[in-house]
Amino acid sequence: MNDPAEKPYCIAFGIPTTRQEFIRSQAASESDYSKRWLGGWGQYRAQFVSDLEIVAPDMEHAGVELVRGLRVGKLSSLFFNRRVVVLFSHWAGDKVEFFDGMASVEIIMAEIPAGYDGVLDLCVCHPIALVEKLLARRPAYLVKYLRQEAAPHYWLYFYRDIFRYMSAQNVDYLKAFEVIAKAHITLGRSSEDGT
């Protein structure tokens, strides 16, 4: 892994982002997400990985480190000198999926440095149990999360725009999130009005 301080933002993928990872994940007993894709790699690639390939170069230019194949033991290293860390993964049972298997809430919490004061964005479907425990600690960092199942391909584009806006306008994550969300809503309304 590159020097974690190299880029100010990070999106770390616990779910597969390459064919090799996908195949490995399907064969691993401790993984869940890839097995849900009944159409196999072809379907997964069309529905998710192809979108990642589109947004990845822009994200990297905007100062986002894309960490693929995230292992739970590497989670703590992501927070060093980072303003935003996005954990892009899958929730099953009461665990989050990583490249090396499922990790419990306790294990994940132990990996998040207490002194971190940036943003932890959990792009994980309804990780409420984890969020509740994190917030109970009254952390210095902000936690963004999803209450229900997420559509990961949409989020790739959202993140691309959010980080690009942050980079271009030198604003914080929340401001960029707000601006991009409002832009989507405005554009959606205007297209509805147009039709």
Partner: peptide
């Protein structure tokens, strides 16, 4: 982004995309 999303998922109708985008944003805390 919307154009790229649409181009990469041609089966997605404008309406479906709109509903999905709003749903994703309202899904956040």
């Amino acid at each position: 982004s919307r154009k790229q999303l649409k181009a990469n998922h041609p089966d997605l109708s404008d309406r479906e995309m709109e509903v999905a985008i709003r749903s994703e944003f309202s899904n956040t805390g």
